[in-house]
Design a protein around this nucleic acid. Structure first.
Lengths: 230, 230
DNA sequence: TGATCTTGATTTGTACACAACATCTTTAGC
DNA sequence: GCTAAAGATGTTGTGTACAAATCAAGATCA
């Protein structure tokens, strides 16, 4: 696969992954190859190439005669993913850190501004988008490509579930506002560390926040279980 | 993909990856979809599904109108892969370590025996196979599936190149014997650590040996450059 | 002779028809 | 009325013909 075909593949792949991770395609949803083929004005063949990759990466599950279903993950396997994500987070500052230039520093400052605005007008979708943009900005701080690739996998796998629960149906507004608050602190701390070029600190701050974010998730899950057993 | 189709996919995928990593398919070699289809008694379609995954994982590169080529990797990108591999190696003992039972301990002892036998009758292929088997045995020491998956990716990507250079055309016998010696020490140390249930130590020993193995690789590469510039 | 174009062979990429499989609906039998 | 078998419908998996692209060899012309 090369040239034009590759470009189209990347385009569709990125878009579908984003839809899955922003929960436009919620867990359990059934996708139809033919519908996607029509949407992207092609045949099933290139679509299947994309779906195959999304299946290999664990976002989808194709079942013969039934359909292609968006996966969910239980809290147990999520914990494994999170543990590894915590460890990899710290490596951003240790493996081939890329000294940020003035543009990069400005980008982090902009992130902080966007985040402050979000506190005033909370929105689940805007939060999800900002969170994702911030992740990609963070990834520019390392030049280690395998680390980037694996971090991306872990990020997308955890985030979609985290979004579902952190800003899901139950404690919606309260929880969302609280999580945006935590996120603002993370962005502020990291922007400050970037501003003075302390990349190792960036990794440690990120690690701490990823770990805390999972701890809050587990705590809320525990509350729900308690509530359900009453 | 499910059931019988899945099983065949896994079979072909595993086999082709092994061929690539044991250098039966050396870097630069061109594979033909139709030949593979014939070998596995099927059509191009299921073969393409396998090749697509191998391409996504970086082992192959399909070029329209040319063929499907086994990739090589330069020492620069290999260094990035190795750095990350060093870090992940240590995590075996830290993330969901699986307390080894008696069978597992015996398996490590057997590895040591196989390794000692190999010292007497050195063979590049037997060494490669043993190295691979040992890796898979190590992976049983953690229950963290994402860690297993990523470690596997990094292992296969580095090992095939390492094999090529560590026991390649130039310093063949001498280098091979030397590397087998180092490997015996690693297996002995790790078997001892496993025997007393010190999984954290297993991770640290493994980390050290992976790092040293790459250091030797770089040193040899440096010598070659020197020799070539004379 | 040398450079450029043309043609043919080879190989991956795409489209589509059909097979295999799963699920829901209908109907036959009692 | 209920159960189970048969059929209809819908979806992914496979096979195959053809399109698009690359490369090499040979022809053509300066």
């Amino acid at each position: 696969m090369t040239g034009e075909a590759r470009a189209r593949f990347e385009r569709i792949y990125t878009l579908l992954r984003e839809r899955i991770c922003l929960l436009d395609y919620p867990p359990g949803m059934r996708l139809r190859e033919e519908d996607l083929a029509e949407e992207f004005d092609t045949s099933r063949t290139p679509i299947r190439r994309v779906l195959a990759r999304l299946e290999d990466e664990g976002y989808l599950r194709s079942v013969h005669g039934v359909g292609t279903i968006v996966t969910d993950i239980d809290i147990a396997s999520l914990e494994q993913v999170y543990r590894l994500r915590v460890e990899l987070s710290e490596l951003i500052g240790k493996l081939s850190p890329a000294e940020p230039d003035e543009d990069a520093k400005r980008a982090f400052a902009t992130m902080k501004t966007r985040c402050e605005e979000l506190v005033g007008t909370p929105s689940q979708r805007a939060f999800a988008q900002l969170n994702m943009d911030f992740f990609h900005l963070l990834m520019t701080l390392t030049e280690n490509e395998p680390l980037q690739e694996f971090s991306e996998r872990l990020y997308y796998q955890t985030t979609r579930i985290w979004l579902k629960r952190a800003a899901g149906e139950d404690g919606t507004e309260e929880t969302l506002a609280s999580e945006i608050g935590f996120f603002l602190r993370e962005v502020s701390d990291i922007a400050a560390a970037v501003a003075c070029g302390a990349l190792e600190s960036v990794g440690q701050i990120r690690r701490a926040h990823v770990a805390m974010s999972f701890a809050r998730l587990k705590a809320r899950a525990g509350e729900e279980v308690e509530a359900a057993s009453l």
